[in-house]
Design a protein around this nucleic acid. Structure first.
Lengths: 218, 218
DNA sequence: TAGATTGTTAATCGATTAACAATC
DNA sequence: TAGATTGTTAATCGATTAACAATC
């Protein structure tokens, strides 16, 4: 059931990104068509879920053939905003922040890292890839001037909310939170958590207590 | 409703990690007690959800006071395996893999990075933090010898399944998948996805189509 | 045509929230 | 005691799966 405003339930959103990478992969390997059953088997879902999810997407399959991979890739790319360049800044020039700033994959995927900021005077002035680490005090005007869309929080947990507030006040549209802290933001600012340590803790729990066959896993 | 085998629904597992970091944070700031209402407000949940989740945890609150932060931290630490050292290897010595191998936070949290592997001859032999990058061919005996629990996949997507198969055959217990690929593994091997690019894509979708007030967000 | 696959409706299942007796 | 908070049961809500008519 497609919604008028294009929003989708969170459960569906999480799968749309997987459908996109799957479609890209298929197309790069020359497949022209893919059925809901193929997708389901490839990603560990049921074909019902796939078809139900597709009802949120403005794209129709063809009976007996399935979905055309080119079209599927195109519509999901647009829906997820992967056809746009998103201006990003990284806050925190530690191991993780620096790795993101240096990683070419982000630019390739449309996430342009415009600047990297840190308050540690031993880090400011250093070069990280093509960028120079600047003090956080320079961040608010920078974000305003460069029309930055996304702030990537790679700072220690105790600093995270403070930095988030600064980014929000500077007009950021979304935050990727890599810090081990819960970020509070007004509703107009999207927040997405992405934390390797948390994933590792979930993984160790999963190793210690494997889910009964069937029950909702990863 | 606590289960006999200690397993919990995935939805609850994801929140347990948050309760743990919240309890650690509270305790480090000197709080002795916390109520389900406090936790709910701190993490953006309802107190009902918190109490329901706590019924999966072998720990009781005290009426009129709430939960003792020390005890809560202790039981969640044990439940999530955060009181154990987990032996890890990183496969892929690119930006992300190297950042993980260098990051002290992992060791501090009980994730001991024992080795880092890569097939690129320009990378093997290089030092990354305290480790030396070894060729992937050395990985299987290494994993056997060091009783490695967890493999962290930081390789390009096309190589991910192949590397995963190698780790699985070597007796790994869990995989943290940072590659843009779906990993197929036998049921005895736990797999957890953790991908920054995917989180960014979900974030841009969230920016483009903000959920209606209420509906399931992050 | 026969068969495969979509799109959608209905049924099931699970997760969240509300409500409230029990407790300290 | 009165009031606050837990633990749990019941109600609601949402997500997944099953089923099947429509289609090519």
């Amino acid at each position: 059931m497609r919604r008028a405003d294009g929003s989708v339930p969170g459960s569906v959103r999480r799968r749309l990104t997987r459908y996109l990478t799957y479609a890209q992969d298929l197309r790069s390997r020359g497949a022209e068509w893919v059925s809901s059953r193929d997708i389901a088997e490839g990603l560990g879902l049921t074909s019902s879920t796939v078809r139900q999810d597709m009802s949120f997407v403005d794209f129709s399959g063809v009976s007996k053939k399935g979905y055309e991979t080119i079209g599927l890739e195109k519509v999901l790319t647009s829906m997820l905003g992967a056809d746009t360049v998103w201006n990003c800044v990284v806050v925190g020039a530690g191991n993780l922040g620096a790795a993101i700033a240096r990683h070419e994959e982000f630019a390739r995927r449309g996430f342009s890292i415009q600047g990297i900021f840190d308050n540690d005077p031993r880090k400011t002035g250093r070069r990280v890839g093509a960028l120079t680490v600047r003090p956080i005090s320079e961040m608010p005007p920078f974000v305003g001037r460069h029309r930055t869309d996304i702030g990537i929080l790679a700072v220690p947990a105790p600093a995270a909310q403070q930095v988030a507030d600064l980014l929000i006040a500077s007009g950021i549209k979304g935050l990727l939170n890599m810090a081990l802290a819960h970020i509070v933001a007004p509703r107009r600012v999207a927040v997405m958590d992405s934390r390797i340590i948390v994933s590792l803790m979930e993984l160790t729990h999963l190793i210690k207590y494997p889910p009964e066959r069937g029950a909702g896993g990863a």
